[in-house]
C-alpha cells in the first residue's frame, strides 16, 4: 500500500520537476498532463473515486487542451530564452526560496506526532456526495456555477477584445 503511494509520488513529482526545467514548452505541457494524471491516480489510491474522475476530466481533459492551444497560439520563434545571464540569479533565488519553503514544510510534517490511522477505508458513495452537494452545500454549488460562467465569459471577452478595437482605429 505504501509502495504504491511512493511510486505515485515519485512519478508525479519527477514529471512536474522535469516539466518545470524543460526548455520546450510543448514537452513541459505534456509532462504536466502526466503529473496531473498521477495526482488523479493518487485520488484513486486514497479512495476518492469521484474526485479522481473530476480531476481527469477537468485537468487531463480540459485544462490541458486550453494550455496546449495557448502554447501553440503564442509560439513566436525558436528564442525560448530562459538561459540569459540576467535570469540565472533569479533561478538561483527561486531555488533557494523553494528549498527553504520545502525545509520548513518537511520539518513541520516530520515534527508532528503521527495520529492514529483509522482501520477502515472511509466509504463515500456518489449518492452520498450528490446528496451532500445538493443539500447543505447547494448555495456554494450555485455560487461556483456563477463563478465559472462569469470567468469563462470574461475569458472570451479578454481573448477577443483586441479584434474589436481594430475597426475603431481604422478610419
Amino acid at each position: 500500500m505504501t509502495t504504491v503511494l511512493l511510486c505515485l509520488a515519485l512519478f508525479t513529482v519527477a514529471a512536474a520537476a522535469v516539466a518545470m526545467a524543460m526548455r520546450n514548452l510543448i514537452h513541459s505541457a505534456l509532462l504536466l498532463v502526466a503529473s496531473w494524471a498521477g495526482i488523479a491516480a493518487f485520488y484513486l489510491w486514497a479512495g476518492a473515486e469521484f474526485v479522481a474522475f473530476a480531476q481527469l476530466l477537468v485537468y487531463v481533459g480540459a485544462i490541458s487542451m486550453v494550455v496546449l492551444f495557448a502554447v501553440l497560439l503564442t509560439r513566436h520563434s525558436r528564442l525560448d530564452f530562459d538561459r540569459e545571464p540576467e535570469t540565472r540569479g533569479r533561478v538561483r533565488l527561486a531555488l533557494f526560496t523553494g528549498g527553504a519553503v520545502c525545509g520548513v514544510l518537511v520539518a513541520a510534517v516530520l515534527g508532528t506526532a503521527p495520529s492514529s490511522v483509522p482501520a477502515a477505508v472511509p466509504s463515500l458513495t456518489v449518492r452520498q456526495l450528490g446528496l451532500a452537494l445538493m443539500g447543505p452545500h447547494a448555495a456554494s454549488l450555485l455560487a461556483v456555477g456563477v463563478v465559472l460562467t462569469v470567468a469563462l465569459l470574461g475569458g472570451v471577452v479578454l481573448a477577443a477584445s483586441a479584434r474589436h478595437s481594430d475597426p475603431e482605429d481604422a478610419p
Binding site: A9, A16, M20, I39, F81, T87, C102, L110
Partner: peptide, 26 residues
C-alpha cells in the same frame, strides 16, 4: 505514517510549483 507520506508528497509538489513559478519567465 501514510498521512505524513501524503503530506510530504504534497509539500514536494508545492515546492516544485513554487520554484517553477518563481524562476521561469514564460
Amino acid at each position: 505514517g501514510p498521512l505524513q507520506l501524503c503530506l510530504l508528497f504534497s509539500s514536494a509538489l508545492f515546492c516544485v510549483g513554487l520554484i517553477g513559478a518563481l524562476s521561469r519567465s514564460n
